[in-house]
Design a protein around this nucleic acid. Structure first.
Length: 853
RNA sequence: GGGCGAUUGGCUCAGUUGGUAGAGCACCGCCUUCACACGGCGGGGGUCACAGGUUCGAGUCCUGUAUCGCCCACCA
């Protein structure tokens, strides 16, 4: 039953009250009988649980929610899940810092382990206990479970219309099973492959990282001019390098093939300083004659260019940096272990550089003083030290070979806003290697396979032992391949599990498969895939969006979604990006407490799609004002007359004009939503609503109340228009002001406004052919009367003796059709409407009653 | 170096087929309580970054420049 209209409507407590009804009535539950064409499916981004949700999350998830609510009202069965990204390094980091522990896979499992520190974690890592892999993973699960409860509570309070029964986590068993299944199928299809190759390596995390996880940081460095000695005795060749510590890893010098300075040197050789290793001078187009001395040393490996040169010029490998970032104890074969090299063994590259520079100064091979510069250096986006490039065995998924296909996939989805597509195109075109998906970490999805160990106890990577597909997910560290026993683990003739876990994006790239339970629930899968919408931030186009396209293309040969909608970032009032390190992060619950959920939703939905937006509490105040206004206007419109007056009673020209104008708003808002421009839909609706309140409501108030000067039909016309307009506006506002609209709906009708049909112009046929000019001129005339009262400093309710209007013929005719309403609203005793002559002399002369008397 | 976006009143931003510049906030003035003081009404305030061009007419289209932001790059 519909509730009574409260005397004093309020927003207080509305989130809890309305939210409880949504939950009890399963308003947002996905209909699993719907066929694919009836479904609107959303590939919700799973927020990372390692931190806290900030206002940027609230911002972008609200955008998605407005689309979901619109589609639901359009009659779609909305598939709108929520997931938590609790997989991977961010969680490991949080657990390490939260509990004050470190993970050491060699430590045995302790079933009775409890975290030793309660909120008082020692700063020094040496005071933190090392615990087993299994204990560590248990802590990861414990902490993420707690974090996820807090996240869900916030989303519910914000009013996201997700179906919570579809919740998933990226480290959950279902996600692991699907990640492993997808990987094994990629392996079988040749899409995934292992290789021993130079890989970007974070020396602190001791893990490979992917191209997509790189960031450049401007770092101080110095050019060192260093002399290499020609083997023919004809003097030196001078190169400039920022990394002199890598001279021992030098395998060649390289210059541009057209560079006249070095034409005569190509094909000759030099000896490296300090070590005297002979290296050739080669030509390659990537060498830049303008940079440094125009000739560079190639090391294995100083940067990604070195890798290209090494590969294309087929150079030997002389690695000197280990996985810990320190100089290897054993030098490359060509380098004498007892010479200059001995001094740098075990040093970090930074320490080694100091030593080598001193050595070069003593030997006279360093020319002049190092020249300080600032240059970009590659970092892992979450790392603290520059990346090194080390050779290791890693798993890859093919991307570069499929470049053209991937670009085509990008054109098969609609981008919102459209210019964001160029970021995808740029990224695909710029790929310089396949996607490295293995990480040397712990809390992630393990690679589901083992290797045979030969009779000598050496791992034979050529013999891969695969699990049965029904057994997934498996952990090769604790599960045993078929035909073996646990006792054979690591033994000669036995087996050993792949030690690595998958990159977090290797799982995240499967979110459509995870939410649709691909391979586990074929019925559900067929009802939601390919999906309708991928909403996400524009900063992760190169990671999440790209990798999801790669997996969909590899497995299904399709584009995973029809639409990709990019949200902008939230900037603080100084237009800086919100970030924890800057300390300018605003806690969302504070904003929700202060302004209310609808107000925060209003602020978020006011921002144009894809546009970075400043946090603006002022905009939230407007949203709250709007919500309060909606409560009060609704109370007025519903508080008079019967509750269900037929739209057929709408007969007054000004009423018809109002309805006609609303039909235009409905058409525009619908078109805007179809184009994923929720902000425009809101703006149109809001703009109409304010003029509805300020002008129309005032103009018809007397008639709606049924003052004696009006006939019953005239009063019914006004009441019917108020109700029709309110009914329509509540539905137009429902995607944005989701709580207050449902509250008002409950005063009037059963059920939720959120399951009502989206309004159409056809419902508003009472406005067909209406003359909008009636409403325009009536509003303007009322405005002129108000202005006269303001200038006379009298109350807006002050009586007016005479108003004489001179209007053009057309406008005068329009005004006559609303003359009684205008006179009533303006407290006008006598309203005279004349034709303006000439037409330019439109005037409204107002004579106040107190002056007339 | 390449690409994408932005530049409109003090602030945050609209302005979708080119037709005499808009909103909210802030500011100024007025009005209280019969939907709303978590209110209402009215007002002042902008040569639409700059320079050219197309057009009867340009915030809107074209070219160039500047500033800011972001993305990408083979940064020795």
């Amino acid at each position: 039953m519909a509730r009574q209209i409260p005397d004093k409507p309020t927003l207080d407590g509305i989130e809890a009250r309305v939210g409880a009804v949504w939950e009890a009535d399963h308003v947002y539950r996905f209909d699993r009988t719907a066929t694919r064409d009836q479904v609107y499916s959303i590939d919700t981004p799973p927020p990372t649980v390692s931190g806290s949700l900030h206002i940027g999350h609230v911002f972008s998830y609200t955008h998605t929610d407005t689309i979901a609510r619109y589609q639901r009202m359009q009659g779609k069965k909305v598939f709108y899940p929520m997931g938590w990204d609790d997989n991977g390094l961010p969680t490991e980091r949080r657990v390490q810092n939260y509990y004050g522990v470190t993970c050491d896979p060699s430590v045995p499992y302790d079933p009775s382990f409890t975290p030793p520190f309660a909120g008082d974690v020692p700063k020094d890592f040496r005071d933190r206990p090392a615990i087993s892999r299994k204990n560590f993973i248990e802590l990861c699960h414990t902490l993420t479970t707690e974090d996820e409860k807090v996240f869900e509570a916030l989303w519910r309070r914000l009013g996201l219309s997700v179906d919570w029964s579809l919740m998933y986590t990226t480290i959950g068993r279902g996600s692991q099973r699907i990640s492993q299944r997808a990987f094994l199928r990629n392996l079988e299809a040749g899409v995934a492959y292992p290789t021993e190759a130079p890989t970007l390596w974070d020396v602190d995390f001791r893990s490979a990282v992917a191209q997509a996880e790189l960031v450049d940081k401007e770092m101080p460095g110095a050019y060192h001019a260093i002399a290499f000695h020609r083997t023919d005795g004809n003097g030196d060749v001078v190169i400039e390098t920022t990394r002199p510590e890598l001279i021992a890893a030098c395998v060649a010098l390289v210059a541009h093939p057209d560079d006249p300075k070095y034409q005569s040197l190509f094909g000759t050789a030099v000896r490296t300083p300090l070590y005297g290793v002979e290296v050739p001078i080669l030509a390659h187009e990537l060498a830049d004659p303008e940079k440094g001395s125009g000739i560079a040393m190639i090391c294995t490996f100083g940067d990604l260019t070195d890798v290209i040169w090494w590969r294309e010029l087929k150079l030997p490998t002389r690695a000197i940096i280990g996985r810990d970032g320190c100089i290897l104890a054993t030098p490359p074969e060509a380098v004498d272990a007892d010479g200059a090299y001995a001094a740098i063994v075990g040093k970090s590259s930074k320490q080694a550089q100091k030593i080598v520079v001193t050595q070069l100064q003593e030997s006279g091979e360093l020319l002049g003083e190092p020249r300080s510069i600032t240059h970009p250096v590659k970092f892992f986006e979450k790392g603290d030290r520059p990346l090194e490039i080390v050779t290791s065995r890693q798993w890859f998924i093919r991307t570069v070979d499929n470049r053209d296909t991937l670009l085509a996939r990008g054109t098969e989805m609609t981008w919102h806003p459209s210019y964001m597509k160029s970021r995808f195109d740029d990224w695909v075109k710029g790929l310089n290697g396949d996607w490295c998906i293995s990480r040397q970490r712990f809390f992630g999805v393990p690679f589901p396979l083992w290797y045979a160990v030969d009779a000598n106890g050496e791992t034979n990577y050529a013999v891969v032992l695969l699990p049965d597909s029904d057994s997934l997910p498996i952990d090769p560290q604790s599960d045993v391949p078929a035909g073996y026993t646990e006792a054979q683990r690591g033994q000669p003739g036995g087996f050993i599990g792949d030690p690595d876990v998958m990159d977090t994006w290797a799982t995240s790239s499967l979110t459509p498969q995870i939410v649709g339970r691909w391979g586990d629930n074929d019925d559900l899968w067929a009802r939601m895939y390919p999906m309708d919408l991928r909403p996400q931030g524009h900063d992760i186009i190169r990671t999440w969006l790209f990798s999801t396209v790669v997996r969909a293309n590899a497995e299904f040969g399709v584009t995973p979604w029809r639409n990709a909608a990019m949200s902008g970032w939230i900037l603080d009032p100084d237009r800086k990006k919100m970030s924890k390190s800057v300390g300018n992060v605003v806690v969302p619950t504070d904003l929700l407490d202060e302004h209310g959920s609808d107000a925060v939703r209003y602020w978020a939905a006011s921002a144009r799609p894809g546009v970075d937006t400043a946090l603006d509490p002022g905009q939230m105040k407007i949203g709250r004002k709007l919500a309060v206004k909606l409560l009060n206007a609704s109370r007025f419109a519903l508080g008079i007359g019967d509750k269900d007056i037929s739209a057929q009673m709408i007969s007054a020209p000004i009423d018809q004009a109002l309805v006609g104008r609303l039909a235009t708003v409905v058409t525009e808002a619908t078109a805007a939503f179809e184009a994923y421009d929720y902000a425009r839909a809101l703006e149109r609706t809001e703009s109409f609503f304010w003029s509805f309140c300020d002008d129309y409501l005032e103009l018809v108030k007397g008639r709606a109340y049924g003052n004696e000067k009006y006939s019953a039909d005239e009063t019914a016309s006004a009441q019917a228009t108020l109700q029709l307009a309110l009914n329509t506006m509540l539905r137009l506002f429902a995607p944005f002001l989701s709580f207050v609209t449902d509250e008002v709906w409950s005063w009037w009708r059963d059920g939720s406004v959120h399951t009502q049909p989206w309004p159409t112009a056809a419902e508003l046929s009472a406005g067909n052919g209406a003359d909008d000019l009636v409403l325009v001129v009536a509003s303007e005339t009322l405005g002129a009367v108000r202005k006269a009262k303001t200038e006379a400093k009298v109350s807006i309710k002050a009586a007016v003796a005479f108003v004489v209007v001179h209007e053009t013929t057309e406008r005068a005719a329009a005004l006559r059709r609303a003359a009684v309403d205008v006179a009533d609203a303006g407290m006008i005793s006598t309203l005279t409407i004349n034709e303006a002559n000439p037409p330019e002399t439109i005037t409204v002369d107002v004579t106040l009653a107190e002056i007339a008397s």
